[in-house]
Simulated assay, not measured.
Amino acid sequence: MSIKKHLTTAGIILASLSFSSGVLAENQVQDVIDESYVQPDYVLGYSLSETQKQETLRLLGYQEGKDIDLKTLNTSSYAKIMDVADDSSLQLYSSVKIKKLGASKTLNVNIVTPKNITKVTEDMYRNAAVTLGIQHADIEVAAPIPVTGESALAGIYYSLEENGAQVSDESKGLAQEELNALSDINQENQGKEGFDADKLNVALTDIKSAVAQAGKDLSKQDVQKIVEDTLNNYNLKSSMTENQINLIVNFAVNLSNSGVINNGDFVNTLSDLKDSIVSKANGNFKGIDLNFDANKAIEQGESIWQQIVDFFKNLIG
Rank of each mutant, 00 (worst) to 15 (best):
S276H: 11
P144V: 01
N232H: 06
L14N: 05
G133L: 12
A15C: 05
E299V: 15
T56L: 10
I207W: 02
T205I: 05
V227W: 04
L90P: 01
L44H: 08
L236Y: 06
A214Y: 13
A197S: 13
A210N: 02
I139W: 04
D265E: 11
I145V: 14
L7I: 15
A152F: 05
K296F: 10
D69C: 10
G155N: 08
V38E: 12
N263M: 05
D138G: 06
G22Y: 02
A297K: 11
L14C: 12
G65R: 10
V32Y: 09
N254M: 05
F19K: 03
N163R: 12
L179I: 13
I33C: 07
L315G: 14
I33G: 11
L273P: 00
T241Q: 02
N314T: 05
Q135W: 06
N250F: 03
G173P: 00
E150P: 06
L101F: 11
V23T: 06
H136W: 01
E228Y: 02
V267F: 06
I185G: 10
N163I: 01
I288H: 09
S303W: 01
L73W: 08
T131I: 13
Q190R: 11
I3K: 15
D198S: 02
K4Q: 15
K286C: 11
V202R: 03
L153W: 08
I68C: 03
I248C: 00
V249A: 05
K119E: 03
I308Y: 08
M82C: 09
G287K: 13
N314W: 04
V147W: 07
Q28T: 01
V202I: 12
I185L: 10
A152G: 15
D123L: 06
K286Q: 15
L315Q: 11
F195D: 00
L48Y: 06
T8V: 11
G173E: 03
K220Y: 07
D31W: 06
G317M: 09
L60E: 04
K208I: 07
T75L: 07
N201C: 08
F292H: 12
T75P: 00
E193S: 02
I156D: 11
F266E: 00
S76E: 15
H136T: 08
A154K: 00
V109E: 13
S271T: 14
A15Y: 02
L174W: 09
F312R: 04
V167Y: 12
K225P: 04
S94P: 02
N243A: 14
D265K: 15
M240G: 02
E162C: 09
L17I: 13
E178G: 09
Q307C: 07
V32T: 14
S36H: 10
G283K: 10
A10H: 02
